[in-house]
Design a protein around this nucleic acid. Structure first.
Lengths: 210, 210
DNA sequence: CGCAGATGTAGACAACTGTATACTTTTGAA
DNA sequence: TTCAAAAGTATACAGTTGTCTACATCTGCG
């Protein structure tokens, strides 16, 4: 079990608090952390060897409930259209209720620490795989080959993460961002159905539907 | 004219150098900067009021040649397929030859400084608008309404930026990333052609093409 | 030339950082 | 109840940072 307690927990939560107020995980200082946690700076060393190890623990802490969140997705939606609508709504709601996790993910995915980057990337890929397998199992978009579904899932996860910060910080745009993301997903899957068509075939099809 | 000279230029270039070696613009220190530039720390104050103003100047410096780069795109590609292939290749090549600019953009777009965030966002939107207008003018995808083209352009710019860091840092994946991005764009536009179709109509279409 | 404004330098300041050593308190099992 | 391990604290050190004031040099214009 990976459950944190006492000072360890206090430090991790202090980090999440600081990050939410617009800091970056990698830029947090040891003393700053201890101060926010109401602990002596040296207590940090009782729990973590250095700041890198601390960062990983924070990531683990975040990954924990992120996973349980993603799992809930399994119990939703029937048709492909429904699926994209409900899933998008759910994912954004999740990001909204975990602003610190969101900020950490967005900032550190391209941040300066290779260690954290790798960890986050793996995490995102896992989520994408889960999403893809779910779509395949339920046969939500049977006209698209599995490998393509996986690819689109990865793209979608990336895109949503990208938009999640705007979603959190600009409440008046939430509706718009959500709908925009739905269009993104639907276009990807619908477009993928035409992957095998040549440019001229597509143009012919276009003339039929304008 | 916004041309930088002397110490001002030295400091900006020092920043770009430091950023390329995996730092973030917001995290650069005044003394660190001066040291890298081979100048006395206090010289900084001769040119900039504070680090925020400095950040903006760096952004401006970057935006300069980013714009001239985007403008070159106008002189390329004929068909929509060609367009996506050549454009994607060009854009990635640009990011590759400007690693510092890329890193700054990716890191600060969601970074802790609201000022830089806004500036970068405006920059990206301008690029997206230019891309969209280009597509519309050349009638590369006539079957899709202008507003949708604008939206897809914004999404594409975001996505490419997101992938640009991986592209720069993982040479062995460049081919793959480039092709993946092309698929991304083609699917978006092809999918958009079907925006008006209902779910059942799409399913009917799907049965014809599997 | 002379001299003013721009540019760069020197030294000092308090505040902060990560880390080390040594000490105290809390905790939980024997 | 005892006592060792875990958790937390106090103090200190050297190094770094942003900023201030005062002084030096360079540059171009009259």
């Amino acid at each position: 079990m990976n459950v944190l307690t006492g000072g360890k927990l206090k430090l991790v939560q202090a980090a999440l608090r600081l990050i939410t107020e617009s800091r970056s995980l990698t830029s947090l200082g040891l003393r700053e952390l201890a101060r926010e946690a109401g602990l002596n700076p040296n207590t940090f060393y009782r729990h973590f060897k250095n700041l890198d190890e601390f960062g990983l623990q924070v990531l683990g802490y975040i990954a924990e409930d992120m996973k349980s969140g993603v799992r809930e997705l399994r119990r939703m939606a029937e048709s492909s259209e429904q699926a994209s609508h409900d899933t998008v709504a759910f994912v954004y709601r999740y990001f909204q209720s975990n602003p610190a996790a969101t900020t950490v993910a967005v900032r550190e995915l391209h941040g300066p620490s290779p260690l954290l980057r790798r960890a986050l990337e793996a995490q995102l890929h896992a989520s994408a795989r889960e999403m893809a397998e779910d779509i395949i199992e339920r046969q939500l978009v049977s006209a698209v080959p599995p490998e393509t579904i996986h690819e689109i899932s990865r793209m979608t996860i990336r895109y949503i993460l990208f938009r999640a910060m705007d979603y959190n910080e600009k409440p008046e745009q939430r509706e718009a961002i959500q709908q925009e993301t739905e269009r993104f997903i639907n276009r990807q899957f619908r477009g993928a159905m035409l992957d095998n068509l040549s440019q001229t075939e597509v143009e012919a099809l276009a003339r039929k539907y304008v």
